[in-house]
Amino acid sequence: MDKWKQFFRDYGWCYLFIAVPVILFLVFTLYPVLAALVMSFQKYHVLNPKWIGFDNYRMMFQDEVFWKAMWNTFVFTVGTVPLNLFITLGLAILIFPRSTRTQTFFKAAFYLPTVMSGVTLALVWFWIYDPTESGLLNMFLGLFGIENVMWLGKSNSSLFSIMFMTYFINHGAGIILYLAALGGIPKSLYEAADIDHASEWSKFKNITWPLLKPTTLYLLVTSIILSFQVFMSIYLMTQGGPNFATTTIAYLIYEHAFVYYKFGLAAAESFVLGFIIILASIAQFKFMSSDVEY
């Protein structure tokens, strides 16, 4: 008994300090993960869940829309993440040699869309893509004699339109991180390269790129996780349509769970999504971090 008293006197404060996060973790992370796993084997009803084994998984893998959603999510990720990373890095490298004041101006300008909500950005772009000449994009293309396009309303352009939008809104935080990392590269390395008459490209390839790898890895992992979960712009702009052309996994989960109330099926799908995201993150760490000294 005394031992416990002593323990409590020594460490009581410490456990009290972390109590709230730990309780929230148990209730809102650990329990839900386990509950979702159980739910994915059930025909779920709040009062009377019924165990149905792998039926949800079978149904999911036989569903054409599920595979379409997987493909769309894959296309969206491949079409946005690498190109956006390239744009972010390119902009950061162009900004870096400028004076502090110019740097601050560009940082602020590129960061501005980041403080605005996804809802606002989706609504503005929804309008840019308006199928008539009221839309900014159609008006602009009209100057060159191009006819109005139903950007979001056609299955061959809708997913691309949502991808295209991301090329102009998501660079702020990445640019700032890259600028900080660029500032941390010792100047002497470049001076040494200059003595050897190294070309700009070889300086980038042999000094800049390797030393930026931790930042690149961080941005790659976070942006892939986010792009696997793309939902809001799709919900607000296309509702997954037309003809499932913009239905992503996250959107499908939303629909199955909160429109059709198929909680068991949605739980199975969300488990697959979670599994893919974790695998992808681990793969990137393995693949990218082998030669990062940090």
């Binding site: 809102f28 839900p32 979702a36 996994i249 989960i253 909680f263 488990f271 974790i278």
Partner: peptide, 20 residues
């Protein structure tokens, strides 16, 4: 353990949290 849970995507826990 807390840090590792940052890897778990929101979708995987969303439905049970909503029901709860």
């Amino acid at each position: 353990v807390l840090l590792a849970t940052m890897m778990i995507p929101a979708q995987a826990t969303l439905i049970p949290i909503y029901i709860m």
